[in-house]
């Protein structure tokens, strides 16, 4: 990993069109400004990671009678609309 030291209001440029600027440092929190093309998706890493975890948990799901009971109502209503 490349490590750089930056002061407040200093930036880092990545590639041709991504700029990351340090806006504010307060205790343990750093406020960062990011300018990037719309096509570049930016997420807080913990959100992406938690969605990843949910998808993996989903894969372990077990379908039982209890599930059918919970969804029984929506099932009938939906069928009625078809």
């Amino acid at each position: 990993m490349l490590v750089l030291s930056r002061r407040i209001n200093e930036s880092i440029i990545i590639g041709d069109d991504i700029e990351i600027k340090i806006l504010k440092v307060e205790g343990k929190t750093v406020k960062i400004g990011i300018s990037a093309p719309k096509s570049v998706k930016i997420y807080r890493k913990e959100i992406y990671d938690s969605i990843k975890r949910e998808n993996i948990e989903a894969m372990k799901s077990e379908l039982t009678e209890g599930v059918r009971e919970i969804l029984g109502g929506v099932r009938d209503e939906d069928r009625g609309q078809r």
Binding site: I51, E54, A58, S61, E62, T64, G66, I70
Partner: peptide, 19 residues
């Protein structure tokens, strides 16, 4: 939307509405 159905505990089934 993705569902997580915990084994042995269907009442705690969750749905991911953010993604």
């Amino acid at each position: 939307a993705v569902l997580v159905i915990p084994v042995g505990n269907p009442k705690d089934m969750t749905i991911n509405l953010m993604a």
